[in-house]
Design a protein around this nucleic acid. Structure first.
Lengths: 194, 194
DNA sequence: TGTACATCAGTGAACGCGCGTTCACTGATGTAC
DNA sequence: TGTACATCAGTGAACGCGCGTTCACTGATGTAC
């Protein structure tokens, strides 16, 4: 209706728009549902136009995953300020992100995009997203025998939870409860909860 | 060379042979590399022949995942007999399975095969594989506040480790060391290890 | 032990499909003078 | 302020490909008598 809806010859933001379309496709049907042609269709542009912004399908996927890592990083960073229970809050944020953006989350860790070293931005975004996890643990390192091992254990724990929820193997309905119970269970923190 | 190598009109074991071929394809190029036609090609049979044994590509994938869960279950069961450190041994077995059969492992937890309730054998095999994990924890339930939560936490932990290793996000070379360190870290077991 | 015949396990050609990518092109934009 | 022109961002037709699946078929197997 409005002029902004009108399809102009020059889209203006085609690159980002294609990434948004890709995210939608990912969440609708997983990586298998993503195609350059379908993304172009959704944005209202010819398939060829995509090559103005991405060299190949793979590079569109890499760019989309990069955005995903930035978003995950931001979510973790925001959670890390919840002071008394920063770690539990970050775990919850991690699981919530995976559930809210399951297709994207899966792509971020899929071999279609992981193995390649050809996308330095992707690597940087990923490192940055997980930097928070490490830092937050390092900050009270004195409590832990081996901070690196502890950090990896915490990461693996929430990552595993996220995976099991989005794969429908653990009941998604209990995601919040279980995550909270596990990230603040007495085997990790000495004091009694509740 | 031998007669067993000869291609006979009646293959005799086409179904299982197709599953083996599918496993190979999974490990070589992931789910994207699997096709009915390629599996048939590897077995030396026409594409049409596959329909004698599987109703569709999806059902071949489901059957392959079923086999995967049985193998994982067997590996966990074998590990669970290592008495003093059954849990750590099972964790190691879990990670080893994922690394040795990464394509299969990924398929087992992928939405291409997970969501469907139409493969009861698949569901049964999965339940059975993970039954061991629960049982092994239940057996010393007295030590734990909430056995169910503890079991899920242990599962999520090793599952997350496995995923991070096969995705190349944690260095695969350290898989054994890290897994051992984490599954017997003092935050989970009180006593000092080493 | 021999034959007839139903059943089973394959073949091979064909279908329609959507894909990623390339090509030669055209319309829109913005800058130099 | 006006025009020329390089550059940029799209179009649309076409390519070759491998896929899943269907069809009508044929060769092999095994069982009844």
């Amino acid at each position: 209706m409005s002029t902004s809806k009108k399809r102009r010859y020059h889209h203006g933001e085609l690159g980002p728009a294609l990434i948004v379309a890709t995210k939608t496709l990912l969440d609708k049907g997983g990586a298998a549902a993503v195609s350059l042609r379908e993304a172009a269709r959704r944005v209202g542009v010819s398939p060829t136009a995509t090559y103005r912004h991405f060299a190949s399908k793979e590079s569109l996927l890499a760019a989309t995953a990069t955005v995903g890592f930035r978003e995950l990083g931001a979510a973790l960073a925001a959670a890390s300020t919840h002071e008394p229970e920063a770690l539990a809050a970050m775990g919850m944020a991690y699981v919530r992100f995976a559930l809210a953006r399951r297709g994207l989350f899966r792509l971020m860790f899929s071999p279609e995009v992981t193995n390649r070293l050809k996308y330095p931005e992707l690597k940087r975004a990923a490192d940055q997203a997980f930097g928070w996890l490490g830092n937050s643990l390092q900050s009270d390192a004195s409590k832990h025998r081996n901070p690196r091992v502890e950090a990896i254990a915490a990461w693996a724990l929430v990552h595993g939870l996220a995976q099991l929820f989005i794969d429908g193997i653990l009941p998604e309905a209990q995601a919040e409860t279980l995550t909270r119970a596990i990230t603040s269970s007495p085997s990790r923190k000495r004091g009694r909860s509740r």
